[in-house]
Design a protein around this nucleic acid. Structure first.
Lengths: 209, 209
DNA sequence: CGCTTACGATACACAACGTCTCGTAAGCGG
DNA sequence: CCGCTTACGAGACGTTGTGTATCGTAAGCG
């Protein structure tokens, strides 16, 4: 929609079957990875607003044109780098509370290992007034919470969650305290707080008789 | 505290008693207000990252120096503008659920009337990698959720919340879904969702026998 | 071998930042 | 009333980063 006449749109180039005959020198996959790695590194060091395309080019050892050939601006580049960071990993123990606690603890550990905790607020802040970014950011966000949704659906199937509960709202309640801590308090959520958090949320969601 | 040797620090100048003899032409309070109003207006239109000091100066009808004389950079200016926007207003009906629903609905209406929904993600995103901003942003955030904390404390006093509950975590759970919607979905929370949200959270927080 | 496209490097115009300097305006103390 | 001091609006200035364009070179394909 934004660029219908460009068959080499950055997001579509992930497809495995090139539509047009790829003549000429192929794009260097090595440079591609170097750029994304440099982006992740620099995001961890200086954050989104401190990130410069020139800095990425220098760190990656590529020319600026090589970056702009792949991404039209800083925002889609950062979005793709964001997509490469780890999300929630599904944990299936047979008990909803343990699933959720395991998933959230794993996710919080990923926050410590990667620049996720700097990236998420930065992207969310940009998203708020950048419709183009929102269009690519939102599907990635939905994809990332899919393991959480699956765990909740398993909980419904097992009878651990009342069937009339709005699972989307339930998911928001589960991750809500993490989001609040991340956005307003600097992401300093202790993993030991995950237990009470989940228990509190579940007591509201579960069937009581 | 943050700048002990500068008696004219922007945040401290709100004090009513000037310490040093104010010789020379006094700063125009009119220009001060015009700058803050222009900042709020422009934030609503272009967001934080689209806001330029030159744009604010033009909209307010002042020179750039008049802005830089009061605020060292864009960030503290936006923080002060943020502080002028409405926060949660305390509602005391005698029933915790009604208090919370009333407060959240009122807050969501403020989101529609003001650039709050653009400002909060932008500031939070900047906060994540800007320690100087975090230092002034965090106290304002704590201050803004104080009515919510008071309502929860009333709930404890009335026996509507179990006394062992961590009220800070409870507050995070209450506003969590709003934060998630604001940061990841564009702030489109329908006021009619407030009811189920509060009921769900309270069922987890309340005393059950 | 020639065609095509990508490569790293760098020059370029543009925009915004934050500093500075104009000439002027406003309050205060003598 | 007059000089001192500081603030005012306006805008020039150097700096930095953006995104585009242009080098000469490199790599795959026919």
């Amino acid at each position: 929609m934004s660029n219908p006449e460009d068959p080499e749109s950055a997001l579509e180039s992930r497809g495995s079957v090139p539509v047009s005959a790829p003549t000429g020198r192929p794009r260097s996959e090595e440079a591609h990875k170097a750029i994304l790695n440099a982006t992740v590194e620099l995001l961890a060091e200086v954050g989104f607003s401190g990130l410069t395309v020139e800095g990425v080019a220098q760190r990656a050892g590529v020319g600026k044109a090589t970056i702009y050939r792949r991404w039209p601006s800083k925002v889609p580049l950062v979005v793709e780098a964001y997509g490469r960071l780890p999300g929630m990993e599904d944990v299936d123990t047979g008990c909803l509370a343990d699933d959720l606690k395991g998933m959230l603890k794993g996710y919080l550990e990923a926050f410590a290992r990667t620049p996720l905790s700097a990236l998420l607020p930065s992207l969310a802040g940009e998203r708020a007034h950048n419709a183009e970014l929102a269009k690519v950011f939102d599907p990635i966000s939905i994809e990332r919470r899919r393991p959480l949704m699956r765990a909740l659906e398993r909980g419904v199937a097992r009878g651990e969650i009342a069937p009339e509960i709005d699972l989307d709202l339930a998911a928001d309640m589960i991750v809500g305290p993490i989001a609040v801590g991340l956005f307003f308090k600097g992401g300093r959520i202790q993993p030991k707080r995950v237990g009470p958090m989940v228990d509190l949320a579940l007591a509201g969601l579960g069937i009581r008789e």
